[in-house]
Design a protein around this nucleic acid. Structure first.
Length: 320
DNA sequence: TATGATGATTATAT
DNA sequence: ATATAATCATCATA
């Protein structure tokens, strides 16, 4: 019943193991497996000690009280006959009372362990940022699948392997990315363009490797990533929303060199575009995933929180 | 040290 | 089961 049993085990050796087991059973979270925080164990031991000392106190009080009652009964037995049954009943009542108190002790100990556990084992407390390359890989996938940024299980596994993180971390990342992108598309335009260029360059180098005369940008030829290029049209989506034109261009696989052209040109010029002019229209072209509730909000989701007067105040420090 | 970025968790809906 | 939205807790930076 009470997980605090783990705390009430033997004092040394198996005690901590039992406690750890109880703690693990408490949350049931598929933790990474390594629970060896010395700090955590120290606190756990402290809780255990308090628990034991309190328990002992209660037991002592119980026996003292029982003695007291017995003495009273003995005195009374001089004036009136007292059956042993009655004594037994008295003792039973006392013990029941004290054991209920001990239950409370166990309960609060259990709570303490749970809190301790959530304090120390909560992954949020030891989060690290992913390394640059990992976020790059993830962003590449995200922006090259912008119209449907929902990687399949296999894709997630591959990304996880590529990035040196777990699949659930990949899922977390995409969940966060989707929601944050949708919430403020303007803020991510810069990034979107950057990766659009990346994928455009990639596509260009793949499809038209013959004409390699001038490759102006992206000296980093490190991680191209071999994703299915079937969604190359997504690059257009990002770019179209950038320059406001290109409506006539069906993403029907125009020569990617064209994309490259446009993209590289834009990377130079996007800075003077204010966010408001970016998502004026056609971001709902085929992006059903970023539709918000149809009840109240019109079609302008991201109420730009900071339109700081003069346009052109975009800091660009995406290179790290 | 205040603030934004970011990974993880929780609550809720589908 | 998975996605979203909100929130938390930490990191990183000005």
């Amino acid at each position: 019943m009470l997980l605090a049993e783990g705390v009430s085990g033997p004092e040394k050796g198996g005690g901590s193991a039992a406690a750890a087991a109880a703690a693990a059973a408490a949350g049931g979270s598929p933790n990474d497996g390594s629970i060896e925080h010395s700090d955590y164990r120290a606190k756990l031991a402290q809780i255990r000690q308090i628990y034991h000392s309190e328990l002992e106190k209660y037991e002592q009080a119980c026996s003292e009280f029982t003695n007291h009652v017995m003495n009273l009964l003995r005195e009374q037995s001089r004036t009136r006959p007292i059956s042993p049954k009655e004594i037994e009943r008295m003792v039973a009542i006392i013990h029941r009372k004290f054991s209920s108190i001990q239950m409370q002790l166990k309960q609060s100990t259990c709570e303490a362990v749970m809190i301790l556990r959530s304090r120390f084992l909560d992954a949020r407390r030891k989060r690290r940022n992913f390394n640059k390359q990992a976020t790059e890989v993830l962003n590449e996938y995200f922006y090259s699948h912008l119209s449907n940024p929902y990687p399949s299980e296999e894709a997630k596994e591959e990304l996880a392997k590529k990035c040196g993180i777990t699949v659930s971390q990949v899922s977390n990342w995409f969940g966060n990315k989707r929601i944050r992108y949708k919430k403020n598309i303007g803020k991510f335009q810069e990034e979107a363009n950057l990766y659009a260029v990346k994928t455009a360059v990639d596509a260009a180098s793949v499809s038209a490797q013959a004409s390699q005369a001038n490759s102006p940008a992206t000296p980093n030829s490190g991680s191209p990533g071999s994703y299915s290029l079937s969604h190359t049209g997504d690059a257009y989506l990002g770019l179209r929303s950038l320059n406001g034109e290109g409506l006539g261009l069906t993403p029907a696989l125009q020569p990617q060199v064209d994309t490259l052209h446009r993209a590289t040109h834009l990377t130079g010029g996007y800075e003077e575009l204010t966010a408001s002019s970016l998502f004026t229209s056609h971001l709902d072209a085929n992006s059903s995933w970023q539709d918000s509730d149809p009840t109240s909000t019109p079609t302008v989701p991201p109420q730009i929180p900071s339109p700081p007067g003069p346009p052109g105040s975009i800091h660009s420090d995406t290179s790290n």
